[in-house]
């Protein structure tokens, strides 16, 4: 189907991972309106092309990963550990 090069486990079948999709910036629940919250929950860019998305390697290292993937060709050009990405603030 598709190989994802996990930075910890090497190239693995996508079936080992849990797809979590394109994430947007989460609004602050304390200050957001219900409408903004629903916009965050329900609406998607649904890009045809390169996307940056989250995957979880459940059957491997059990780390959250940030994956750059093309949604038409399934090319993958980068997989990084989500914690590292968050530390560097480079998502």
């Amino acid at each position: 189907m598709m190989l994802l090069p996990c930075p910890w486990c090497g190239p693995r079948n996508a079936g080992e991972f849990k797809y979590a999709g394109e994430g947007g910036a989460r609004p602050d629940p304390a200050t957001t309106t219900p409408e903004e919250w629903r916009r965050y929950l329900y609406f998607h860019a649904n890009t045809r092309g390169w996307v940056t998305e989250s995957w979880y390697h459940g059957a491997g290292c059990r780390r959250w990963l940030v994956v750059e993937r093309h949604t038409l060709t399934h090319e993958v050009r980068g997989v990084r550990d989500a914690v590292q990405v968050a530390r560097e603030g480079t998502r």
């Binding site: 189907m1 996508a14 797809y19 394109e22 045809r48 949604t71 038409l72 399934h74």
Partner: peptide, 13 residues
């Protein structure tokens, strides 16, 4: 299929 895509390929899985 388990992830979003615009590809219409079939899979062995």
């Amino acid at each position: 299929d388990p992830f979003a895509s615009y590809s219409m390929r079939g899979s062995l899985e």
